[in-house]
């Protein structure tokens, strides 16, 4: 008996066993879902890579030439959008100096009180730039510094549909096949609006949610990842909920406030957590509007993963994710900017 045969006899299962497990409806469903996605790889349903951020309300119908010009100018510059003020003064008068995650959350709450969230049937347009991964053929590994990819998506505020531009054509897609980010049982419009906007109560909900996640990650890390997952996947999060999510992060001792320049050159605030001793996960927040503006994942130490699926070497300084929202708008129809 040679050692290949020995190894084969300790295989957890055979190809025939596996083939029997992916047959019939389950197999057809997966193939059909995949073929519904954008083959160009732009943000689609497969990965929650739509990057929510700041929104600017655009007039219901953008017909005036001056408005069109203004919008085009806005899109041409990497300037974060500004939340629409409810009152006459903006920014709010009682913001405090941002010296801690808690102060950031407090200011975000004040800003949220003066923000008009989009109506359920409106659409949120986002233009996001990101760096690009190398490592063909298998998906994202370390990003290539200096590379840029720009994507544009529209997501209906009630999350019923999403749309993207491909080959000059707007492709509409139902969000039925979009699942929930890790740590959330669902992310329907009604569910998100039912979540508490008090950080303590929201923390309890999240802790309860993340208990079901397999693995031995610390609870704080699970909470951090769940918060980021919700923020990065929902362009239409109610502003008060966003503020409460920052408040949840502020309650984690592992989360730190920072000041950074994002991929688009924007000066931003950051909330970060170092995970597993080598990976700095950071979200960026607009210091004027307190809207989420992007994220970065950076290896701050060399690291070698352990797992049966092969050794993975991560080197200090490697970017594993890097993106920034450079334009956003609330519009009435997909395709409008």
């Amino acid at each position: 008996m040679n050692d290949d045969v020995l190894i084969s006899r300790i295989a957890p299962l055979s190809d025939a066993d596996a083939a029997a497990m992916i047959s019939g409806q389950a197999a057809r469903e997966l193939a059909e879902q995949i073929m519904q996605t954008d083959p160009a790889g732009r943000p689609g349903p497969a990965r929650h890579r739509r990057h929510p951020l700041r929104m600017v309300p655009v007039a219901a119908a953008i017909t005036a030439a001056a408005t069109v010009v203004a919008v085009m100018v806005a899109l041409a510059r990497p300037v974060p959008a500004v939340r629409p003020p409810r009152g006459n003064s903006w920014p709010p008068a009682h913001l405090e100096a941002v010296t801690s995650p808690a102060a950031l959350a407090a200011n975000a709450t004040l800003a949220a009180d003066r923000t008009i969230d989009p109506r359920p049937t409106q659409w949120i347009y986002l233009m996001v730039i990101s760096t690009i991964s190398h490592a063909p053929p298998g998906g994202a590994m370390a990003q290539i510094p200096g590379t840029r990819q720009t994507t544009g998506t529209w997501t209906r505020a009630d999350r019923r549909q999403t749309a993207f531009l491909t080959n000059g054509r707007i492709v509409m897609m139902s969000t039925d096949i979009l699942g929930s980010p890790i740590g959330w049982p669902q992310i329907t419009y009604s569910y998100l609006n039912s979540l508490p906007t008090d950080p303590d109560r929201l923390m309890n909900v999240i802790k309860d949610n993340v208990q079901a996640i397999p693995g031995d990650d610390p609870t704080g890390q699970r909470v951090f990842n769940a918060v980021v997952a919700l923020i990065e996947n929902n362009p239409a999060l109610p502003a008060r909920l966003s503020a409460a999510l920052y408040g949840v992060l502020a309650e984690l001792n592992s989360v730190h406030l920072g000041h950074a320049t994002d991929l688009a050159g924007q000066q931003v605030l950051s909330l970060s957590e170092v995970q597993q001793g080598y990976l700095k996960q950071e979200i960026f927040i607009n210091p004027a509007t307190y809207a989420y503006t992007g994220q970065e994942t950076l290896a701050i130490r060399d690291h070698t993963s352990t797992g049966l699926d092969g050794t993975l070497h991560i080197h200090q300084g490697e970017l594993l994710a890097d993106n920034a929202i450079v334009a956003s708008a609330i519009v009435d129809h997909p395709g409008e900017r």
């Binding site: 349903p45 990965r47 998906g139 769940a226 797992g307």
Partner: peptide, 16 residues
């Protein structure tokens, strides 16, 4: 490669 990536990107779990 996807398996290797999956360990550190669990929050991006696909819905497919």
């Amino acid at each position: 490669r996807v398996l290797a990536n999956h360990h550190r990107s669990e929050r991006r779990r696909t819905a497919l």
